[in-house]
C-alpha cells in the first residue's frame, strides 16, 4: 500500500506547551482516514502540520519528519504555495471568499498562474467541472455571479471543497467539515467525500464518532498529543486495543 503522508517522531510546541508528542503515522492513499479524540488532543494541530499552516502563528516549533507524497516538507527546497496546492484544506466554518461563486473557484488557479493566461472559455469549463464534481452545478449554474457568502452553509462548504479541485490536489485535509452544518448538510458533504475518495486522499478531523464510523476506512485515536491507536475503523470501534480508546469510543468520557 502506498502512503500519502508519513510522519516520524513528529513533535510540536506552541511556545512551551507541547501539543504533539512523537507522532508516527502513515496515511494511506486514496481513502478517507479520520482523526478522533477529545478536544485539545492535537488532532487539528496534526492536520495543520501537513500543509504547514501552523507556522503562521509564529511561536510554533516543530521537530521530526513529515513526508507528504514522498517528500519531506521541511526541506529547504519545498515551496509553500506548491505544497498547499497539493494539499488542500477545508475548515470548520465554511469560509468562501466574499467574492462571486465563479471567482471563488478560480481564486486558487489565478494566484498560481500568471496574469491573463486563462481564457474565458477555460475558466467557464473549469468552474463547471469543479461545481459538477461537488454536485452544485445544477443548483448554482444560474447564480455564478452571486456573492459566495450569501449561499446556504451547506452550499458554502461544498464550494470550499470545489475551489480546491481546479488546483488538482492529491490530499484534502478537513478540519471538522460538518460541525457547522445540519444533518442534511452533513449527509450531503459525506456523500461528496465518498464520491471523491478514490481520486483524492481525505484526512478528516471529527468530533462526531458516528461520522467517523460512517465515512472513514481507517481511524486514528489521539489523546493529549499522543497517537494512541490507528486501525481500520470497524476494528477500532468494535475491539479497541487501548483502554483509553475503549473509554472514548464507548462514550465513557470525552
Amino acid at each position: 500500500m502506498n502512503y500519502s503522508i508519513e510522519t516520524e517522531n513528529l513533535s510540536l510546541w506552541y511556545g512551551d506547551f507541547q501539543a504533539l508528542i512523537d507522532v508516527n503515522v502513515k496515511i494511506p492513499d486514496g481513502q478517507i482516514t479520520s482523526l478522533i479524540g477529545p478536544s485539545g488532543c492535537g488532532k487539528s494541530t496534526l492536520l495543520r502540520c501537513f500543509n504547514r499552516v501552523n507556522e503562521r502563528y509564529g511561536n510554533v516549533t516543530t521537530r521530526g519528519k513529515i513526508e507528504v507524497l514522498g517528500k519531506n516538507i521541511y526541506d529547504s527546497d519545498v515551496s509553500l504555495p506548491e505544497l498547499r496546492k497539493a494539499v488542500g484544506m477545508v475548515f470548520q466554518r465554511p469560509n468562501p471568499l466574499p467574492i462571486s461563486v465563479y471567482e471563488n473557484i478560480l481564486f486558487g488557479l489565478r494566484i498560481h498562474s500568471s496574469m491573463g493566461s486563462l481564457t474565458r472559455t477555460e475558466c467557464d469549463q473549469i468552474v463547471e467541472e469543479a461545481l459538477t464534481s461537488v454536485f452544485l452545478w445544477d443548483d448554482l449554474k444560474d447564480r455564478l455571479k452571486v456573492r459566495a457568502t450569501s449561499l446556504q452553509l451547506e452550499q458554502q462548504q461544498k464550494l470550499c471543497i470545489a475551489r480546491l479541485l481546479p488546483l488538482k490536489p492529491k490530499i484534502i485535509l478537513m478540519d471538522e467539515p460538518c460541525s457547522a452544518l445540519d444533518a442534511k448538510g452533513t449527509l450531503a458533504v459525506e456523500e461528496l467525500m465518498e464520491a471523491l475518495a478514490g481520486t483524492y486522499t481525505f484526512l478528516i478531523v471529527t468530533h462526531n464518532m458516528a461520522q467517523a464510523r460512517r465515512v472513514s476506512k481507517e481511524c486514528i485515536f489521539m489523546f493529549l498529543g499522543k497517537l494512541i491507536e490507528h486501525r481500520e475503523t470497524q476494528a477500532l470501534f468494535q475491539t479497541p486495543e487501548h483502554p483509553k480508546t475503549a473509554d472514548y469510543v464507548q462514550m465513557r468520557y470525552g
Partner: peptide
Amino acid sequence: IPMRESAYALGAN
C-alpha cells in the same frame, strides 16, 4: 481570520 486562512491554505503568499 478564517478568510485569511482560506487564502493561505490555497497557496497564496
